[in-house]
Design a protein around this nucleic acid. Structure first.
Lengths: 241, 241
DNA sequence: GCAAAAGTGTTCACATTACACCCATGG
DNA sequence: CCATGGGTGTAATGTGAACACTTTTGC
């Protein structure tokens, strides 16, 4: 019921920003990987007395002269040693009491990486890959954050070819299908899956085959990024709810 | 290349949050309305010397004891007098230099409301509805923010029945189609549109008709929220990119 | 009776689903 | 030769797109 006349405002009026209106900001990274036929998430042990022994996401405080996106890349780099990895903002969590040390608003990013690339750098005992479906309680509001990011991932793998970030450059269709099934937590028909993927014309047939498998080796493919850049839909139209 | 061993961290170690690691946080609301056959956005004149006379979003600083979502509801309430309006977080913008008064990280929400409900409260001369497609330059990074929210809106109206937030309770199919066309900025086939909407079985036929139109009056419908709550898809599956 | 929009069905192309058998390899 | 997954095609069904004429009202 406040009348809207002339409310002083950060967007309309030069305003001195006083200390009591300042907050800590963190970024948290939900880092997904695929290993052992299971979708996993990279977590770290929490030492805060309130959450002793629980697992938490990888995050850090935003630095004074650092863009928000840059902070998330920094966390990812510091923890995995990897650069040029898929990383995208998901949501910001800003409840007053979400962090016991004080008010911390956190912007959450999710990342997809190939576990094989990362293994070399995984020196820290406190860092572990956890099957996403088996993670139960976590420190802070991190379970809620993980759930949000998992849903975002499930939605997004169906809309954009981001799943290839989880895989080796060369893969068989079975591997690709396995990852979809692990992420979506459903079973897909093998023939229809292959047909569908081929009609995208985004797979390059490498004329190579799997090795050392105890059955008929599957053909290997790679994802054709150049072609996707060309043919990707600009705007999709179709009301559907 | 930083090794990942034992980096002190907001999530793992109790950490005193020092003032130099604190920032102003704002919320900005991108408030969409539909009027005069055009999708509009509610903007306010900016008085900062750097952006004299430019238009900006409605926003304010986060308060110390206020949840982030609550802040966005407060801004919406203060500016429109409306409660219980569709409001959803979109993205957080945190570049170092995005605000000339200092470091301000902003979390952006988008809102859909019925312009008719709002008109009674619109007392402030500095507040105006602008056709979304005609907004060019804005203060701060607000044009980028508006573009992001507009794209989110375009995507989301196709996935969820949020468009009804922009409309009167009773509407004709022509009005509904007009709003879709205005938002998506395309033309839709009238027969196919009607067919599609009827097959959702989410429209209640009110057995009433438009009045005072200079042509054959159309039937009026309302959106069946209860039914949608029941039949809404939990998980959609269909790889498509 | 004219202007303006409401209301209505069919056809075609394409996408999705369900479903079963033979093949190539390692052991 | 056996176990394991690789590779393949078709029929039925459902969905999206294109398209034109009659009806009802206000003026």
């Amino acid at each position: 019921m406040t009348p809207s006349r002339r409310i002083p405002n950060i967007n309309t009026t030069p305003l001195e920003i006083r200390p009591e209106f300042q907050f800590a900001i963190s970024v948290d990274c939900v880092i997904f990987g695929y290993d052992d036929d299971v979708l996993k998430v990279l977590l770290i042990k929490c030492d805060l007395p309130e959450f002793k022994g629980k697992w938490s996401l990888l995050g850090d405080l935003l630095l004074p002269e650092e863009d928000l996106d840059a902070a998330s890349y920094r966390v990812l780099r510091e923890r995995t040693g990897l650069e040029n990895v898929f990383l995208e903002q998901v949501h910001t969590f800003g409840d007053v009491k979400r962090h016991p040390s004080g008010r911390v608003v956190t912007t959450v990013y999710f990342s997809l990486l190939n576990v094989r690339d990362h293994q070399l750098k995984q020196l820290d005992n406190e860092l572990h890959w956890h099957p996403v479906l088996e993670v139960t309680d976590m420190a802070f509001d991190h379970k809620k954050i993980l759930d949000t990011c998992y849903k975002t991932l499930q939605k997004k793998v169906q809309e954009e070819p981001i799943i290839f970030n989880l895989m080796e450059n060369k893969f068989s269709l079975r591997e690709l299908q396995n990852i979809y099934e692990a992420i979506l937590n459903i079973r897909l028909d093998r023939r229809n899956f292959r047909k569908k993927l081929f009609t995208t014309s985004l797979l390059t047939d490498l004329d190579e085959f799997e090795k050392d498998v105890p059955h008929r080796p599957g053909k290997l493919y790679s994802f054709n990024h150049e072609r996707y850049a060309k043919i990707r839909r600009k705007t999709f139209v179709g009301i559907d709810f």
